[in-house]
Structures are given as C-alpha cells and as structure tokens.
C-alpha cells in the first residue's frame, strides 16, 4: 500500500511546493540532457516532420486553390506536421522512461524521497519541450517556404503553446504505456495508437468538406479542434471561440493521459 504522495515530506525549511517544483524541473532537465546526448533519438522525428510539410504542401498546394480559396495551404498543413511530431516527441519521452527502468536508475530514484508525480512530470515536460523545439523548426521551414502567419509573432507563440499542451498530452499516454509494460517495443508501438487520431480528422481538407463516417469521426476527434485553432492562427486570424475550443480539447486529452500515466505509475511502484 504505497501511498502516492503529491508532495514529499518536508526535510528542510523550504516549502513542500517549492521542493516539488524543484524536483519536477530537475527531472525534466535531466531527461532533456540525456535526450540531447543521444541526438539519434530526436533527429529522425525532426526530418519526418519537415518531410511531411514539404510533401503535403508540394502535392496538394495546387489543388488547395479549389477548396481553400484565398488561404495558404502551407499554413493549413503545418499543424498536421506538428501533430505528427508530437507522436515522436511522446515516443522519446516514453523511451527515456523505459531506459531508466532497464538500467535500474528508476528503482534508485524510488529509494529517494522524490515525489512520485515528479517522476512522471519530469519526462512529460521534457517530451513536450522537445515537441516545442520541433515545432519551432517546422515553422522556420514554413517561413523559408513563404509562410506569413495572419496573427504574426504572437500567433506563432500561441502555436508553440498548443504544441506544448499536445506534447504533454501525448507524452502522458506513451509514458503510461512505458510504465505499465517497461518494454521498449510496446512503448514504440504505443505512439502508433495515436496515428488514427491524427488522421481521422480534417487532415488534408477543412472539416466542412468531409462527409460520411469520417466527418462523424472528425467531429468527435479532439484533434480536429486543435488543428483548427492552429490553422486559424496561421491563416485566418484571431478567433476567440476557435482558440478556446482548441485549448479545451488539448486540456481534456492532457488530463486523460496524465491520469492514465499516474495510475500506471502507481501500479509500477506499488510494493509487492
């Protein structure tokens, strides 16, 4: 009956909250350090993201004139690339946990008074920050291809903010799988479970042009609203309602996956 404490017991004069935040940032920094010491884990995802932008834009740009009059297809398709990047960012975070479980460092951490949530949030945040970085680079490539966001620099920051939330949300899920299975293969496979979610939505065309079952799926898919929010930031300008819908959708996914990761952690650290 190992109680999961959100805050560690106080060992000095610093407040519990400070100690907790300190632990989270320490764990996140550590995850980032190790991720960047193995650049091979980050680079393929990055290349794929850029590849998506180039290929989708290249092949659908012409046709887009008919279904997206007056809008940039580049600004329309970039968010899809960001969502796909989120999968690789999440996978990196999950693999980092599996690595810790394998090399025994995870068990070592469990013997310290570290808050169990910090064990979880550290790599989640690291995964999300990797995504923010990937997003920034993808947007940079977009600029090189002539992207002119309607909402300017602040809009780009807002897109990065969405990326952070999506990164947290996806990482939570993959980390949950990593903790549950402790297996690199299962964790690698987990990010593919998100694949349908990124395609059963208005991936290539606006949602209004979808019909039938895929329209229904897209309407219920929270990713649709995140895509629409980012697309608005690039192409059509600020719209409070669209922004809020996108924000709500990403927070809902993040809450679900965090809960999943948290229960997976509890299952793993439960003493037998």
């Amino acid at each position: 009956m190992s109680a999961i404490t959100l805050f560690p017991s106080r060992t000095d004069e610093r407040s519990g909250t400070m100690l907790f935040l300190n632990q989270v940032s320490m764990m996140a920094r550590r995850s980032l350090t190790t991720i960047f010491r193995e650049p091979a884990s980050v680079i393929p995802g990055l290349i794929i993201s850029v590849f998506f932008v180039l290929v989708y834009d290249g092949s659908l740009n012409g046709a887009a004139r008919f279904f997206l009059p007056g809008q940039s297809y580049l600004g329309f398709i970039l968010p899809v690339s960001i969502i796909s990047s989120a999968l690789s960012g999440a996978s990196i975070a999950g693999q980092a946990i599996v690595r810790d479980i394998d090399n025994g460092y995870f068990d070592k951490l469990l013997l310290t008074p570290i808050s169990r949530s910090a064990l979880l949030l550290g790599p989640m945040i690291a995964g999300a920050l990797v995504l923010v970085l990937q997003t920034a680079l993808v947007i940079l490539v977009g600029f090189l291809l002539g992207l002119q966001p309607e909402t300017g620099f602040v809009g780009v920051l807002a897109v990065l903010g969405y990326a952070l939330l999506i990164g947290l949300a996806f990482s939570g899920f993959v980390i949950g799988i990593a903790l549950r299975t402790g297996s690199a293969a299962a964790t690698g496979g987990a990010s593919f479970l998100f694949f349908p979610l990124t395609f059963l939505t208005a991936t290539f065309t606006p949602v209004e042009l979808l019909s039938g079952w895929i329209r229904t799926a897209a309407d219920y898919n929270p990713i649709t609203y995140i895509l629409e929010a980012m697309r608005a930031l690039f192409n059509t300008g600020w719209d409070a309602e669209i922004m809020l819908r996108g924000l709500t959708a990403s927070i809902i996914i993040a809450l679900f996956t965090f809960a999943f990761a948290f229960f997976s952690l509890r299952a793993r650290v439960r003493r037998k």
Binding site: T34, E38, P113
Partner: peptide, 24 residues
C-alpha cells in the same frame, strides 16, 4: 543494490548532484 542503478548517459557529478538535491 546488487544491480547498480546508474544512467549510462549521465556524468557522475550530475547524478550525485540530483541525488543530493532529492534528499533536500
């Protein structure tokens, strides 16, 4: 422990600093 729990990608000083900080 018998099974050494160290992260091969980190440096010794980094691991020790984290360890000491986790203990307050």
């Amino acid at each position: 422990l018998q099974e050494i729990g160290l992260d091969p990608l980190m440096k010794s000083i980094e691991m020790l600093v984290i360890q000491a900080q986790l203990f307050g």
